[in-house]
Design a protein around this nucleic acid. Structure first.
Length: 539
RNA sequence: GCGGGCGUAGUUCAAUGGUAGAACGGCAGUUUUCCAAACUGCUCACGAGGGUUCGAUUCCCUCCGCCCGCUCCA
């Protein structure tokens, strides 16, 4: 349970975000709209920084990941293949008497919570008509609004990656194992948007689909599949990694990313999904959690955390579904596999063939393909191994941008208490963002506003830094007030131009004061060294 | 979707069936010297609609939104 003190922190954070222009309610002047939020000037910078850091880390700084930017509205067939159309269209019935909600097609089989002797269909509770609960936003493509023109706003960005898998493979000069990354909006008509921007109806995702060889293929090529030790640190991908090693590697990579933007290990939590929680096609899923003020506590009173990102091992389910629904092959050709297969002993070939066949057949049967057809198709798939063909498996690290923004805000929030000369204490907010994500990197200010030489010099300093980073020039009010304002925005450094900068003490000419947000420490630095001092700290 | 609580300047809070007030913030100014200094001036609000009433921010209803619990969560 989150207690009232935790709620107080959230309330303060929410009002700070509005006051300083991080987050506004969408459509506020019309009374707002539930589940939608806008980012103000500081929030837009923060979000941009987060997305750019993710993109850089996941694509540009690696040679095994390519990027993609797909449309939000796609062929509705995609959502049939992914399962979203079927999963979300269950008609539900609410009981106004017992407040229960039941699937309309199951009311004859579920007993009434208040009168367990009777089924829901027979009890005397006042019930609503069956209502469809599809969590996908619907629209129409083209001017005619009928069944044939129905389309959906994507409920996740991942499916576009699968749908464009072959195009990216052919144009990026990548070979399995490799990944496709995408950042973009997704939409879910959530029953209950909650916890500020944590669960919204319009949100942004950062998703990687990392395609790997099936374990059978790794075994055929390398002779074995490396089994990672449970806590072993994996940083350097190896050819003999199977899905378990790749999964462990990506969990660790993602944790390293979060640590690199200021979320320490103590603020994070993990949830390893149990077999019962896993989707039927998934082999593993590890959630990375952040301990929010509103998070529930476990029996020891420790915050458990809420999901920032899920790293799922999804087998070849997604590509297989799209192969089946589109009729287009989603397999890859692997020269290494073909060469290795010919060198395998016959019993080894048979053994690997059989396991691949069983996996394929299992998938097909679970997908509703009839036994005969499933056997035939699985045989064909397994025969492909000898020709160097297989359908890649996938590891999916899928993160929510807005959840991460909220985590960064909650993590950064702190209060400093100042006591003035009269002994009056006053508390003020300091957002301790990591410099890499901070919306404003440097506040530039003349010590006084009414001295044109100071102002001109400070503007020159601003112009020196501006091509490289987001800076904010401020000459309004006392210097202390301006520092405090920057603290509240989370700006890690302030640069102040004073009379010594102008040469009042000749030995200090062209030096400035650097003031640190955390602790208020000050140091003096030559203007010529300023850029090279700041840049490494914000990159 | 259900139940409960709530809705007054940007923020935090007052007051009132009869002209809506403060603090902080913001903006402009005065100030030669570094952590929301002081002083002056200015800006900004009753969530929306309907009803009762001579008159509603106040009472009633509906809607919208926020918070809490349930429900949901591919």
């Amino acid at each position: 349970m989150s207690d009232s003190k935790d709620n107080l922190v959230m309330e303060k954070l929410v009002s700070l975000c509005k006051r300083r222009g991080f987050i506004f309610q969408s459509s506020e002047i019309y009374g707002g709209i539930n589940g939608f939020w806008d980012y103000g000037p500081l929030g837009a910078e923060l979000k941009r920084n987060v997305k750019e850091l993710w993109w850089n880390t996941m694509t540009r700084q690696r040679d095994d990941v390519a990027g993609l930017e797909a449309t939000i509205i796609m062929s509705p067939e995609i959502w049939k293949a992914s399962g979203h159309v079927a999963t979300f269209s269950d008609p539900m019935i609410d009981c106004k008497t017992c407040k229960g909600r039941f699937r309309a097609d199951h009311v004859g089989e579920i007993s009434c919570p208040q009168k367990p002797s009777k089924m829901v269909a027979e009890c005397h509770g006042e019930k609503t008509e069956p209502r469809a609960f599809n969590l996908m936003f619907q629209t129409f493509v083209g001017p005619v609004q009928d069944e044939s023109s129905v389309a959906y706003l994507r409920p996740e960005t991942a499916q576009a990656i699968f749908a464009q898998f072959k195009n990216v493979l052919e144009t990026s000069r990548q070979k399995v194992p490799f990944g496709i990354a995408q950042v973009g909006k997704a939409f879910r008509n959530e029953v209950t948007p909650r916890n500020y921007i944590f669960r919204s109806r319009e949100f942004e995702q950062m998703e990687l689909e990392f395609f790997i060889k099936p374990d059978e293929v790794v075994e055929a090529i390398c002779g074995q599949v490396a089994v990672p030790l449970p806590g072993a640190t994996l940083t350097d991908p190896q050819p003999d990694w199977g899905w378990a090693a790749w999964h462990q590697y990506w969990v660790q990579e993602r944790v390293r990313f979060y640590e690199g933007i200021g979320l320490s290990r103590e603020t994070l939590g993990f949830h390893v999904q149990t077999p019962a929680e896993l989707a039927h096609y998934a082999r593993a899923c590890t959630d990375i959690l952040f301990k929010f003020p509103f998070s529930k506590r476990d029996e020891n009173g420790e915050l458990k955390g809420e999901e920032l990102e899920g790293i799922a091992a999804r087998s070849d389910f997604d590509l297989s579904q799209h192969a089946r629904f589109s009729g287009k092959p989603m397999g890859v050709f692997d020269e290494e596999l073909r060469a290795a297969w010919g060198k395998l002993a016959k019993d080894r070939q048979d053994d690997i063939w059989k396991r691949y066949y069983e996996n394929r057949k299992g998938y097909l049967e679970k997908s509703g393909v009839a036994f005969e057809a499933a056997s035939r198709q699985a045989t064909e798939d397994a025969n492909g191994l000898a020709k160097g063909q297989y359908i890649p498996h996938v590891i999916e690290p899928s993160a929510g941008v807005d959840r991460l923004i909220l985590a960064l805000l909650a993590n950064a929030y702190s209060e400093a208490t100042d006591t003035d000369a009269k002994g009056k204490s006053e508390s003020r907010v300091v957002l301790k963002f990591h410099p890499r994500v901070a919306p404003i990197k440097v506040g530039v200010m003349p010590l006084l506003k009414n001295k044109p030489e100071l102002v001109a010099k400070a503007l020159a300093v601003r112009d020196l830094l501006r091509p490289w980073m987001n800076v904010f020039y401020d000459d309004a009010g006392s210097i202390g007030r301006r520092y405090a304002r920057q603290d509240e925005a989370g700006t890690p450094f302030c640069v102040t131009v004073d009379f010594d900068t102008l040469g009042e003490k000749p030995e200090l000419k062209d030096t400035v004061t650097i003031r640190h947000r955390d602790g208020g420490r000050q140091e003096r630095l030559a203007l010529g060294d300023l850029l090279s001092w700041i840049l490494p700290q914000i990159r």
